[in-house]
Design a protein around this nucleic acid. Structure first.
Lengths: 256, 256
DNA sequence: AAGTGGTCTAGACCACTCT
DNA sequence: GAGTGGTCTAGACCACTTG
């Protein structure tokens, strides 16, 4: 279990005085929610062990079980926790396998939908770029710059440029490109303890991008996806721009 | 108030025997949720009067107030109801103003973001089209076919083709195009008591579409949005295909 | 002041998982 | 059988809106 003991004693003091709470009168369950989330994000991530039971949390926090349930329900809706009946409540293992597939439905030569394979081509330590650092919430920081392609049947279908804050990713700054695996987020997690939990993507079309890996002509339309990926605290830890051809593009959304 | 009286007496009989429930053991709150939703969708829509209070519903259904609250919470999450403290719980007035703006951020000559103005160009009663009727869940039905353009600063930026089931839209089948207003969904509601509550959209790119209103050339890329719009029961009541130029296209999404 | 939803309690029993 | 979350109860008091 994650160590959440001694919460009870800290409860009142911590809840009302910590930064987000000065002067605010948040509902009890919001305070519990925030406190649990803080505890989770400052621990080493464990996806295989349950967090304390609702009953335990209720006792530790000195609130009723219904209040804890409401807090956990919120965290579940946000995609941070998953509840499994009979087993417990777990940190949700985020999987972004499907994320680019939300936009691109690539087919291989047989016509089946496939996930393009990723391959890092270049890794480079570079000086500060203002607009990237703005996005990452940093200032004048060195950056780790990565070029990566994604392929289906040995054909390059997407080209990606990735910027990381050098500070948090020192562990991989000097590794050769070949050691970066197919998927980057598990790689970040293993090597740097940086966990991507959410991302916001922006989609647009451009005729301005000349890509070194896509053999596109001048003035040809490309799809551009800008992604900012964040950790549990909402802190940006990666900025990425992906380019691809429009013919494979397909995206479905439900509006309510 | 909506008339939800006499629910109590019908409760047990109705809940377990009505179509979705034969043999199923749904939680109480799910049954309540479904029952409320049914009642709402078979009434004339009233967005200005509250539904019965939680206390009343609890008494009528013979369940505790917590169970009713959970049912209503679900309906709130689905965007069907809105709760207003001190006033009551209301049917949510759906607004799709922003929906196309989710994809297209049109700027006018001053550079501000604007909602394109809609204008119906053609209204026509046509014979059955199989793939449209499939989408609408109908068979061999006549259709109402509409052509509509959307404009910014007198420039056509989107072109739409719309198909409606003739049966439910007889009231507008023979109206001249000029009488269709700027927005269609409020028009459907007023004239035909057809209320759009949700929609699923599919986005793609095509070089195949030659549009009568967009002055596009052969082989030029266009954005295509296919939308199926549904009422409260999830029944499809409109199918629409919209085409536009990619240069204004911009779409943001949050992934978790 | 009366009525609404918002928050919170202190339990109960059930369904499921694991040992 | 022990432990987990899932469902459900029967209240209480508070915050907000309206007459």
């Amino acid at each position: 279990m994650l160590n959440l003991s001694s919460l009870h004693s800290e409860f009142n003091k911590k809840m009302i005085d910590t930064p987000p709470f000065h002067g605010l009168k948040l509902p009890l369950y919001e305070q519990v929610r925030w406190h649990i989330q803080q505890r989770l994000s400052t621990h080493q991530m464990r996806f295989d062990e349950p967090i304390p039971t609702e009953k335990t949390l209720a006792e530790n926090y000195g609130v009723s079980i219904g209040t804890v349930r409401k807090a956990i329900e919120k965290l579940t809706q946000e995609g941070i926790l998953v509840k499994v009946q009979g087993k417990g409540t777990f940190l949700k293992k985020p999987d972004f396998h499907a994320s680019l597939l939300r936009f691109f439905r690539m087919r291989n030569h047989k016509g089946d939908f496939v996930l393009p394979v990723g391959r890092v081509q270049k890794v480079q330590l570079i000086e500060s770029i203002d607009y990237i650092n703005d996005i990452l919430g940093e200032k004048n920081n060195k950056l780790l710059y990565i070029e990566r392609i994604r392929m289906v049947d040995d054909e390059i279908v997407l080209s990606e440029q990735i910027w990381l804050p050098e500070k948090a990713f020192q562990a991989i700054a000097h590794l050769p490109a070949e050691q970066f695996g197919n998927l980057l987020y598990p790689f970040y997690a293993e090597q740097c303890h940086q966990y991507v939990f959410s991302a916001s993507e922006q989609l647009s079309f451009t005729q301005q991008h000349r890509d070194p890996y896509l053999s596109n002509k001048t003035q040809e339309w490309l799809v551009k996806i800008s992604r900012t990926a964040c950790n549990l605290n909402g802190q940006a830890i990666e900025y990425r721009e992906s380019y691809g051809y429009p013919h494979n593009f397909n995206y479905a959304i439900k509006i309510t």
